[in-house]
């Protein structure tokens, strides 16, 4: 007998089957646009200064990969989770079956990670075509993307189970996702930030993901050593998962 968490995952797959073509297409299209616009065009100016030591395209591509993992994880963990409680009430319907709260969280997060994996894979293929993979470690960018995805999806699951209005997602994106994307080392090294801002970058899971991804595709060392970054991201995953399970239980008990 299949595990109940797998049945939850399967439900999401049945939904995804309707839209997968569009989503796969965009997971190739978006990286192409980003790398053309940011990497090559902006890069043309940045590279004249030569301050980075590598081509701007090579610098920014792994950062964008990690930030894509964050974006996909965040959007798949906000409205769809909220809907499960308030609109389509999917979690309520599961609550009437043998499926337990932990199964709901695991099964749904597994699906979010599948979406992250597909987007990250598309991104990596495009990066290869742009000639931005410079190391045999590059395939490790894929598991790193999953780690970033889980480290952000799990706490956002908890957030989405907690909030009472969808307006709170605008707050989440404005004050967490967007600042992270802008200031966690995706577009420029955090060394150039003032100390306080740099500290915030260090706290964010994205910066650690960017460091690891960049280390993998460029074959360079990361700021704190790979295991420190991995450990920090795992801490977010574990804390987020525990919090999400707790919040789901609370929301469904109402």
């Amino acid at each position: 007998m299949a595990h109940p968490a797998y049945a939850v995952f399967e439900h999401q797959l049945v939904s995804y089957r309707r839209v997968w073509r569009g989503s796969v297409l965009s997971s190739f299209l978006l990286p192409v646009l980003f790398l053309l616009a940011m990497g090559l065009s902006v890069g043309g100016y940045v590279d004249r200064t030569g301050g980075l030591g590598v081509r701007y395209l090579d610098f920014i591509a792994p950062g964008l990969l990690a930030s894509t993992a964050l974006q996909v994880a965040a959007s798949e963990s906000t409205w769809p989770v909220y809907s499960g409680f308030h609109w389509h009430r999917m979690y309520h319907s599961m609550r009437a079956t043998p499926v337990r709260v932990a199964d709901m969280v695991r099964g749904h997060i597994a699906y979010v990670l599948l979406r992250v994996a597909l987007s990250a894979l598309g991104f990596l293929i495009v990066m290869a075509l742009f000639g931005t993979l410079h190391s045999w470690w590059a395939p490790l960018a894929l598991p790193v993307s999953l780690l970033v995805g889980l480290a952000t999806a799990a706490p956002i699951f908890a957030f989405s189970a907690l909030v009472k209005t969808e307006g709170m997602f605008a707050v989440l994106f404005r004050f967490a996702v967007v600042p992270m994307t802008l200031f966690a080392g995706v577009f420029f090294p955090v060394d150039s930030l003032p100390l306080a801002a740099r500290a915030l970058a260090y706290v964010s899971p994205l910066w650690h993901g960017v460091e690891l991804t960049r280390a993998a595709t460029l074959g360079t060392a990361s700021a704190w050593g790979a295991w420190a970054h991995v450990g920090y991201l795992v801490a977010w995953c574990v804390a987020g998962y525990l919090l999400a399970t707790y919040r789901f239980g609370r929301r469904l008990a109402e």
Binding site: V14, S15, S93, T97
Partner: peptide, 28 residues
């Protein structure tokens, strides 16, 4: 148990049949 809640909790994006098969899977 079979539960028919007061508020609908069907998956509106799935077909009639899929709603049943997906739900059956929750019972193993």
């Amino acid at each position: 148990l079979g539960v028919c809640p007061q508020q609908d909790s069907l998956d509106p994006e799935l077909t009639v049949r899929e709603n049943l098969t997906v739900y059956a899977r929750y019972f193993g």
